[in-house]
Design a protein around this nucleic acid. Structure first.
Lengths: 224, 224
DNA sequence: TCAAAAGTGTTTGTGGTACACCCATGG
DNA sequence: CCATGGGTGTACCACAAACACTTTTGA
């Protein structure tokens, strides 16, 4: 027997697109203008083309909604319960994308309504997208503990204070400045540039992420 | 436009079934008796039925191959590159299953050849199953660091020495007996039974996994 | 000269790791 | 009584957390 003997489920990708705006984590959502869930907000997504790899489909969605595609993108989980889409059997592969703050200016180019939502003030969502979004946020908070993904939300050059504020927003707690700088330094994931940022107060040195820093350090073993 | 306007990919589940046998981690593989990759070994899997949830399909595969289904089963990753299956566009959702040692006696009930392979002596595999298997092993070794999944490879009752040996096999390194016992105790994930195991030497107390121990402890934060 | 943010070391406490001996049973 | 595996406590070291003042610039 071959694959063609059976009716097949549809396959979609949904991309949870996250950025840092206005000192908050924000998520890009689209207002649905078609049934089902017409008028509800949803995570951007769409069907996977037959000649398109999964990650390529996710990058296409990302580009369609934000105009960027060369950003951090990671597969999260595949949702395949029965009845999660009233149109029929739909399996959805969820991705998370992290968009650097200054790139996240325009949200969508076509006619549909799209906007950034602070993660603390989300509207009711279509389908099981609430579950998908919560999953993405959990993964982000978890991953930031042992992997330098936080930098993917920063512009190319940034001050240490800005980086610290980003971490504080993601983790939801204040951090000590000296300890923060020591650990960042020891992790060897950023390098100084020779430029400075002038604003109020003393100018701050700008740093950049070291692209050769593939430091995914092993977490501490707990069991046992 | 609707889902039905497009040709759809096929969706399969592949289940990496792992157990502890003969002081080794072993994986259940099936010898393919059909093209493509006829004669090669493959991870058990099959097409997802149109009226079957993803995890249900994985449990069905698991039950067909091992006779058990009430075991640890976790979704790993979804593989959706073009060209990964010569029969056409196939998207595969990979799962990992951990089968307790004494349940892993019979491997397969139908005519196909199936056997357990030590993970250090794997044969050439069909499709991209080598990649899937390596992914599963990485996830297992990683997850055992912060979550009590190791117990899912143990029988219902076990001695502390047997548990330690299991951890040593999974992690591939010797552990200190006193430190091991202290950490297991502090984690509060097992409880003593009032039965003992007699063999050579002094009888050992048998313990069981505390099912209410949902201790997925947060790993130490590294950045920063 | 004042406000505002940048930058910089030391002390203390907790937790991980290393390590050796006595105990209970069966043959 | 001997072989075999079961069971137990402490000392040291490394790293994380707490903590306050000086420096540089622009207004």
């Amino acid at each position: 027997m071959t694959a063609e003997d059976y009716p097949k489920p549809s396959v979609t990708v949904d991309v949870v697109i996250i950025t840092l705006r206005d000192k908050e984590l924000q998520v890009l959502l689209i207002k649905r203008d078609l049934a089902p869930y017409r008028g509800k907000w949803a995570v951007p997504g769409g069907f996977v083309h037959i000649d398109e790899a999964l990650e390529a489909a996710a990058r296409r969605e990302l580009r369609e909604e934000t105009g960027v595609s060369e950003v951090y993108l990671e597969q999260l989980y595949t949702f395949g319960e029965l009845g999660r889409d009233p149109r029929g059997r739909v399996i959805s592969v969820a991705y998370i994308a992290l968009v650097p703050a200054p790139l996240a200016v325009t949200a969508g180019s076509d006619a549909r309504e799209a906007r950034w939502w602070p993660i603390g003030e989300l509207p009711p969502l279509a389908f099981d997208h609430n579950q998908i979004l919560q999953y993405a946020l959990t993964r982000l908070r978890y991953k930031i503990e042992y992997s330098p993904v936080g930098f993917r939300l920063m512009p190319e050059k940034f001050t240490l204070s800005a980086l610290q504020k980003a971490y504080e927003i993601i983790l939801g707690e204040p951090l000590d400045k000296r300890n923060f700088r020591r650990r960042i330094n020891e992790a060897k994931v950023i390098e100084p540039t020779d430029t400075y940022h002038s604003g109020e107060g003393r100018p701050a040195r700008l740093y950049r992420f070291r692209r050769d820093a593939i430091a995914e350090v092993k977490a501490r073993r707990l069991f046992p």
